[in-house]
């Protein structure tokens, strides 16, 4: 402690005031990159093993573990075709198996995609070949696949994901987003009910509940025997003062709740009879 009371405090205050005008040491990180010494061990590098294969198995565990998503991967998939970003589990599981085989010295078989519900993929392969395995043409691929199979089987979606390099989740998301793409086998008849305010005022609500009780399924469902599905449809504001109800896409003008029930009963009856 200095002999003059308060001198220590004054010295400290002088120092902080001098620092106030000094150049600052902060490194404004994203704009101003810090100088990383060449020996720094924190760099990301991909190494090759003695068999010449990348040690990185593209397992994406580093990318998934990275809390700020600064790790990403790019490159080609195992067929040397498309750009890969970290994606579906089924892809990297295969790749790991392939690499393991290669290391062990055993012959690497051609990847035969086997799903739990196999479909004949030759036609799909033709479609994919035609579309150049381009994930950007996903909608077209899916539409043509549906035109061929009648719906989109899971195995086909998996095959598309595998072949185009897109995530399964992406393909599935595309398929489930569009109303005209179906993930389930088609039913024989579709009854559509519009739920817009105009149709509700005109009485579509009563028709809808009548149909739901008659068919025993909620809106958007399919009867257990697969004969009729009840789906929301859209009148596009052109209902003309009457509820908009369609049967297989065709408008049923002037329909009432009783008529709708009768229609539903006839369809289920016909379907049951037909099937029996």
């Amino acid at each position: 402690m200095s002999t003059v009371p308060g001198l220590g405090i004054v010295k400290g205050m002088t120092l902080t005031l001098r620092r106030f005008f000094q150049p600052k040491v902060t490194v404004q990180y994203p704009e101003q990159a810090p100088s990383i010494p060449p020996r720094h061990r924190g760099r990301l590098q991909l190494l090759y093993d003695e068999w010449g294969a990348l040690k990185c198995e593209t397992c994406f565990q580093c990318a998934m573990a990275c809390p700020i998503e600064c790790i990403d991967m790019g490159g080609t998939d195992t067929k040397d075709r498309f750009h890969v970003h970290w994606g579906p589990a089924e892809q990297y599981a295969e790749r790991r198996q392939e690499l393991a085989l290669r290391r062990s010295g055993r012959p690497v078989p051609d990847q035969e995609f086997v799903s739990f519900d196999p479909v004949d993929t030759s036609a799909l392969d033709a479609i994919l070949e035609d579309e150049e395995h381009d994930p950007a043409r996903m909608l077209s691929i899916l539409e043509r696949t549906q035109a061929h199979y009648g719906y989109l089987p899971v195995a086909a979606i998996k095959h598309i994901a595998h072949a185009t390099g897109a995530w399964y989740a992406d393909v599935y998301g595309t398929a489930s987003f569009y109303g005209h793409l179906h993930l389930e086998p088609p039913t024989r008849h579709v009854i559509g009910v519009c739920r817009c305010p105009a149709c509700s005022l005109a009485g579509s609500g009563a028709i809808r509940s009548a149909l739901e009780s008659a068919l025993g399924v909620p809106l958007g469902g399919t009867t257990p025997d697969g004969s009729v599905s009840l789906e929301p449809s859209d009148c596009h504001g052109e209902n003309g003062g009457a509820p908009w109800v369609t049967l297989d896409g065709a408008r049923q003008p002037g329909i009432t709740a009783a008529a709708a029930v009768q229609l539903a009963r006839s369809l289920t009856g016909a379907a049951t009879a037909g099937r029996a």
Binding site: L17, F20, T26
Partner: peptide
């Protein structure tokens, strides 16, 4: 800002 400057930092910017 003032405390940051005295700490040799830039402070909010």
């Amino acid at each position: 800002k003032v405390i940051a400057f005295m700490n040799l930092r830039i402070g909010p910017n």
